[in-house]
């Protein structure tokens, strides 16, 4: 048996965390309690439940960005009109996470802190230039998501620090935004490869701006900035599509595991990207 701390305010949560440095921060618990299952009873660390911390809940609009509380569950994100307006890509991704009950429990902050290569919310957050706001008794700071996530299960979160909000800059929408997840079945499956893409074309139908990100094909989300730059000005035709496929095939670095082989992931990563680019023309 271990204690469960249930602070109602952020300062209280930070104080409790300072007093219990071994405490595990718990939001939706969908990942944490599964991992804890294997633990030998009697040695479990204290749990710090963040579900009732008011500052970590909900979605607010500020002048320059949309702020999503770290302990906001995905079902709330999916239902929120502000997220639909400013970050439809995140809505698309959130809809593919777990089943309905999991989406009522699992939170955006939890998905980020778990830092799984397969985290479904991550590719959209990279494309949306999300910043991760952190708080500790010493103060606040914010990091770009790419700087926050360091590797599988590793983040820049320091001892005594909590993720408080995810900040999404309000930027003009892209006419084409698409998230695609592939798994071994249609629902309730951990991603084998995921893809997020945003693009706009110029008046001549050439690519004006394109951003792409892949999940589950590297230790963290994979971006191919050189390809994105190279594609600016390219017409949407077969040669471009082929170029994209080749570049992705070479650019991603997946591993083989129980869910799929590296080779398959590479193929699908390329196919999802070419499908996205091809569809820009249609």
């Amino acid at each position: 048996m271990s204690a469960v701390l249930t602070p109602a305010r952020l300062d209280e949560a930070l104080r409790l965390l300072a007093e219990n440095p071994a405490a595990l921060a718990m939001a939706g618990a969908t990942d944490l309690l599964v991992r804890r299952r294997g633990a030998i009873p009697g040695h479990e660390p204290v749990l710090l439940s963040l579900a009732h911390v008011a500052e970590l809940q909900g979605i607010t609009e500020e002048a320059a960005f949309l702020a999503i509380g770290a302990a906001t569950p995905f079902s709330r994100i999916i239902a929120d009109p502000l997220v639909h307006r400013y970050a439809p890509l995140l809505v698309q991704a959130a809809q593919t996470i777990g089943g309905p009950a999991i989406r009522n429990m699992a939170t955006l902050g939890g998905n980020i802190c778990t830092a799984s290569p397969a985290g479904d919310s991550l590719p959209p957050l990279y494309l949306l230039d999300a910043r991760i706001e952190l708080a500790s008794p010493a103060g606040e700071r914010a990091l770009p998501i790419a700087a926050f996530i360091l590797g599988p299960g590793r983040t820049a979160l320091e001892q005594g620090e909590l993720v408080t909000r995810i900040l999404l800059p309000k930027a003009p929408r892209f006419p084409r935004e698409r998230f695609i997840k592939t798994g071994r079945r249609k629902a309730l499956a951990i991603s084998v490869t995921s893809f997020a893409g945003r693009a706009r074309l110029d008046q001549d139908g050439r690519i004006a701006e394109i951003r792409m990100a892949w999940g589950s094909v590297g230790p963290t989300v994979v971006r191919l900035p050189a390809l994105e730059t190279e594609l600016v000005g390219a017409p949407v035709h077969a040669a471009t599509v082929e170029r994209v496929g080749l570049a992705v095939h070479q650019g991603v670095a997946p591993i083989s595991d129980l869910r799929a082989s590296a080779g398959y992931r590479r193929l699908v990563a390329a196919n999802l990207a070419t499908q996205f680019v091809e569809a820009l023309g249609g």
Binding site: V34, R184, R185, K186, A187, L258, R259
Partner: peptide, 11 residues
């Protein structure tokens, strides 16, 4: 059941 998959209602 995360790694041994059986069909869900959408499969």
């Amino acid at each position: 059941l995360a790694t041994y998959l059986i069909p869900t209602a959408v499969d």
